[in-house]
Design a protein around this nucleic acid. Structure first.
Lengths: 229, 229
DNA sequence: CAGCCTTGTCACAAGGCTGTCACACGCTTT
DNA sequence: AAAGCGTGTGACAGCCTTGTGACAAGGCTG
C-alpha cells in the first residue's frame, strides 16, 4: 500500500513518513506541488496526503490535476481556521481531511477508512508471512500456527519491518529509521534488539534460521520459499 | 441519528455536514432561521446545531420557537467574545454551546454528550456478548446468566465499549474519548476505572481473564471464542 | 444534615523494557 | 603474528508503566 505524502514542512513530512512506514505503508515524499505531480505520475500511489499550502504549485492545483486524470484518493492536511480551504479542497474532489495537530492513530484510521471507501483492499496489514503471524495491536507473534510469544514494542516494530520486507536485507540505518524514528539509535541498540528478538523466536539463537546477518550491512528475514536453493 | 445544522456560512455548514456524515450522522442543512424552523418541523432531528447570527429569523428566535414546542436538544455555535450571546442562548433553553474554531473531535463529543443527557441512546444497544449481558439503562451486568452486578455510569460506558469492540484492543485515548467524552481524562483515571471494573467482574482481579492489558497501548475484552486455542 | 456512592488524585511497589558496558570470537588487514 | 573491526553474548541499571491501596471532594438520597 503506497502513500504519497506532500508537505513543504520537512520535519512534519519526515514524521508522517515514519509513522506510516511503521504501520506498514510504503511512503513517497514530495515537498512542493511540482514534485508531487511528478511523483504521483511516476509511482501511482494508492492514496495522497496533501498539504494545501505548497510552494510552486499549490495544493488545490495538485488536487485538480490528479482528479482530472484519476481517482486516487486524496486526504487534505490543514491547520485549524482554514475551513474555507477544507471545503474548497473537498469541492475539488478530495476525499477527506484531517486537521493538524493529529495523532498517528487518527491519521492511520483516516487513511484506512478512505482506502476502504475507495474499494482498495481493506488492507490486511502484515498479519501473516511464511510461518509467522503478527498481531500488532496485542504484540503477539504466532509461529507455525503453534507457539505464541509476546513481543515488546520495539520488537514488534522490528518484526513488522522484517515481515514487510521478507527476503530482503535491511540496512542498519534503515532499521533505525523505521523502528526508532526521529529519536534515533546506534548500532549497539540494533544489535541488542535483534539479539532479543532472535532469543524469542529462533529455535537455536546461536544458529539463527529466520533472521540472517549480513556483516557490515544489516539484517533480514529469510523468505519461507527462498529456503530451498 | 439525525442532526439539523443551521448556519448562514455555507462553507462552514458544508464542512460540518461532511464531518458529521463521516462520523455516521444523518445531516440536514438550513441557512437561515426560517428554513431552520421549517426543516425542524419536517424532519424532526435528534439534535440541532445552531448558529445565533442568522438572517430572517435569528438564532434566539429559533431557539425559543423550538423550545416552546419540543425539547429537541440544541447546541449553539458561536465565535469567541460572544459570551453574552452564549448566556442568552443557554437561558433560552439551549443545552450546550461550542466555540469556533473547534475540532471535529470536540464537536462529535459534545453532540454525543448532549444526546446522552437527553436520553437518546447515541450508541447501538449491545445487550449480549459472550457471557455478558449489559442493561445500560439500569446499569446492570449479568455474567453467565447467573450473577448480576451493578455498575457505575462510567463503568457502564467502559463495559459497553469493551463489548462493542470485543476481541479488539482499545487504545487508552480511544477509551477516554468514548467514556469521558468532552470532559476528557488522563491515564490514571483510565487505570482506576479498569481496576474498579475488574474488581467487580473478574473472578480473580489479580489475574484477569476477561479484560486484558497491552502495556503502553490500552485494554481490551477477550472474545469468548478466542478462549479456546 | 448525615451518610453513602462515585470519582479523581496521590504515593508506592513490582516488573518489564531498553540503553549501556564489557568481553569473547572470527575475520581481515598490516 | 598482531592488531583492528564487526558481531554475538551476558549482565546490569535506570526509566517507565501497571497494579494497588488509600484518601478526599462532590453529588445524591434518605
Amino acid at each position: 500500500m503506497k502513500v504519497l505524502v506532500v508537505d513543504d514542512d520537512r520535519v512534519l513530512a519526515d514524521l508522517l513518513a515514519f509513522t506510516l512506514r511503521r504501520e506498514g505503508f510504503e511512503v513517497i515524499l514530495a515537498f512542493d506541488g511540482a514534485a508531487a505531480i511528478q511523483k504521483w505520475q511516476a509511482e501511482s500511489p494508492d492514496v495522497i496526503l496533501l498539504d494545501l499550502n505548497l510552494p510552486k504549485v499549490d495544493g488545490f492545483a495538485v488536487c485538480q490535476r490528479v482528479r482530472a486524470a484519476e481517482d486516487t484518493p486524496i486526504i487534505i492536511l490543514t491547520v485549524r481556521d482554514e475551513e474555507e480551504d477544507i471545503v474548497q479542497g473537498l469541492d475539488l474532489g478530495a476525499d477527506d481531511y484531517i486537521q493538524k495537530p493529529f495523532s498517528p492513530r487518527q491519521l492511520v484510521a483516516r487513511i484506512l477508512a478512505v482506502l476502504r471507501r475507495a474499494g482498495k483492499t481493506p488492507t490486511p496489514i502484515v498479519p501473516k508471512v511464511g510461518q509467522f503471524t503478527l498481531d500488532r495491536s496485542r504484540r503477539l507473534l504466532q509461529i507455525d500456527s503453534g507457539t505464541v510469544i509476546s513481543l515488546t514494542p520495539l520488537e514488534t516494530r522490528l518484526m513488522s519491518q522484517f515481515m514487510i520486507h521478507a527476503g530482503q536485507i535491511l540496512a542498519t540505518e534503515s532499521i533505525i529509521d523505521h523502528v526508532w524514528g526521529v529519536q534515533g539509535a546506534d548500532r549497539d541498540m540494533v544489535r541488542q534488539l535483534v539479539r532479543r528478538l532472535r532469543r524469542k523466536l529462533e529455535p537455536d539463537p546461536a544458529n539463527p534460521i529466520y533472521i540472517e546477518t549480513v556483516s557490515g550491512h544489516g539484517y533480514g528475514m529469510v523468505r519461507p520459499d527462498s529456503q530451498q536453493p
